[in-house]
Amino acid sequence: MIECPTCKHQEFVGTMYCSECGTRLTLAHSAPTVSIPRDEIRAESQVTRPTVPEGPELESGAVIGLRVVSTGDVLPLIGRDNYTLGRTIEGQAVVPDIDLGPYEGYEQGVSRMHAEVRLDPEAVSIVDLESANGTLVNGKRSDPLTPVVLRHGDVIQIGRLRLQLISRSPG
């Protein structure tokens, strides 16, 4: 038997798609997350903190969102109380809520299930989901599976990809 890496369902040898969650089984291990040396990540996180955008961008309805520093795109975080961040590959069944693939997620060392943003009434926090390259908050590496509280303007680094939390409430 072989085990589906996503949902742990057992399948016969030779099965190409998990019958439970639809994950492409032969592809499951062929696209590992790009490994980036830790020093490089640390060095990049030392660059100055980007200024917090004000004005129209915030007025556009994004009460809470993540701004991709490199492109300025804002990914809204509205409607749910948690979002997983990662990247999607073809045939993957359990996919992240927010796909960072379009922001060169693969090249930037984003894991397929990298981190989770939790929006609780009292605070917004981020949890690293044991990703390959880790999650940094304002340049500080967070411990895997441990929530770190975020404030407006905080910079989160997913692998090498930098995101900034935008929150209308002063946080």
Partner: peptide
């Protein structure tokens, strides 16, 4: 065929 050969296994295997 989905693969060119079967594996000599003592468990069932799937083929397309």
């Amino acid at each position: 065929h989905s693969r060119k050969a079967l594996l000599p296994l003592d468990e069932p295997q799937v083929h397309y």
